[in-house]
Amino acid sequence: MSPAPRPATRSTAELSALLQAVGRGDREAFARFYDATSSRVYGAVLRVLRDRGFSEECVQDVYLEVWQKAPTFSPEQGSPAAWLVTMAHRRAIDRVRSEQSRTDRESKYAMLDAAVGIHDTSDRFLDRRPVLDAMQELSGRQRECLFMAFFEGLTYAEAADRMGVPVSTMKSRIRSALAKMRVDPRVACLAE
C-alpha cells in the first residue's frame, strides 16, 4: 500500500475529529485520515527502514493499528500527528529489531552447523541431537522459551506476549537456559 498523494494539510482539530470518527468505526473517516497522513507516516518509516518494500508493509501495519487503537486516542493527551508518528516510529524500530534477531538467529544456526561439520542436509537431524539432548535438561518453561525464540523465530516481545510475561522475564529465561546448556561441551558453540 503506497502512501496517498499529499493533500492539503489538515488542522489538528480536523485530524482529531477524523480519528475520533475512526474510533467509532467510520470507514470513510479512516480513508480521509489515511489520505491526510500516510505520506508523513511513510516518510517516518522509510527514514528508519531505508527499504521501500519493508516501509510499505510497515505503513500497512501502522494503519491497522490505527484502526484498532483509534477508540483509545484522546486529543487531551497529544496531537493526532504526534500519536501517529510515534506509533509509526515504534513499529519501524520493532521491524528493525525483528530483522536483526532473525539475522542473529541464522548466524547462530550457521555456526552450529559449522561446529558439528554439517555438509549434507540428511545429517542435520542427527547432528542437532546434542542440542536437543541438552534442552531436555532444562525446565519446561526454559525449553518453551528457547523453542519460541530459536525454532519459531519469535522476538522477545512476541514470545513474552504469548507466555503472558514481561519482556525482561522472557530475556532472563532465555539467557539462563542458554547458560545452563553451555555447560555441555557438545553445545559450547552457543556461547558465541
Results as ranks from 00 to 15, higher is better:
164 G>V: 07
9 T>E: 10
32 R>G: 03
102 R>E: 15
154 L>I: 01
105 R>D: 07
116 V>C: 02
154 L>K: 01
17 A>W: 06
11 S>Q: 12
181 M>I: 06
85 V>N: 06
116 V>E: 04
178 L>S: 01
85 V>L: 15
156 Y>D: 11
87 M>D: 00
40 R>W: 12
171 K>T: 03
116 V>F: 00
96 V>K: 09
50 R>G: 12
30 F>C: 02
128 R>D: 05
9 T>P: 07
66 V>Y: 08
64 L>T: 14
15 L>G: 05
133 D>T: 11
53 G>L: 14
75 P>E: 15
9 T>Y: 10
187 V>E: 12
89 H>G: 00
190 L>H: 09
174 I>Q: 03
126 L>M: 11
165 V>H: 01
27 R>S: 12
174 I>V: 08
126 L>T: 13
184 D>W: 14
91 R>H: 12
98 S>V: 14
153 G>Q: 03
139 S>R: 11
169 T>I: 05
116 V>I: 09
113 D>V: 01
168 S>P: 02
69 K>Q: 13
37 T>H: 11
34 Y>M: 04
61 D>R: 09
10 R>E: 07
49 L>H: 02
9 T>F: 02
61 D>T: 08
158 E>H: 06
4 A>F: 03
146 L>R: 06
107 S>R: 14
14 E>K: 09
72 T>W: 14
84 L>W: 05
179 A>D: 13
167 V>Q: 03
95 R>H: 13
124 R>H: 14
76 E>V: 12
167 V>K: 00
1 M>A: 05
80 P>L: 00
78 G>V: 15
26 D>M: 07
160 A>R: 04
143 R>E: 06
9 T>W: 05
128 R>Q: 13
138 L>V: 04
23 G>R: 04
93 I>N: 09
157 A>L: 11
126 L>P: 00
109 Y>M: 01
94 D>A: 13
34 Y>F: 14
140 G>A: 07
53 G>T: 11
56 E>K: 04
152 E>L: 08
59 V>S: 03
118 I>Y: 02
29 A>M: 12
162 R>K: 13
47 R>S: 13
61 D>I: 03
187 V>Q: 04
54 F>A: 12
179 A>L: 10
16 S>P: 01
33 F>A: 02
132 L>T: 02
157 A>S: 09
10 R>H: 06
39 S>H: 08
76 E>D: 15
40 R>Q: 15
49 L>I: 10
77 Q>N: 15
77 Q>R: 15
143 R>W: 05
145 C>H: 04
97 R>H: 15
111 M>A: 13
6 R>H: 14
109 Y>E: 12
112 L>D: 02
35 D>P: 02
3 P>N: 00
97 R>L: 15
90 R>L: 13
23 G>E: 02
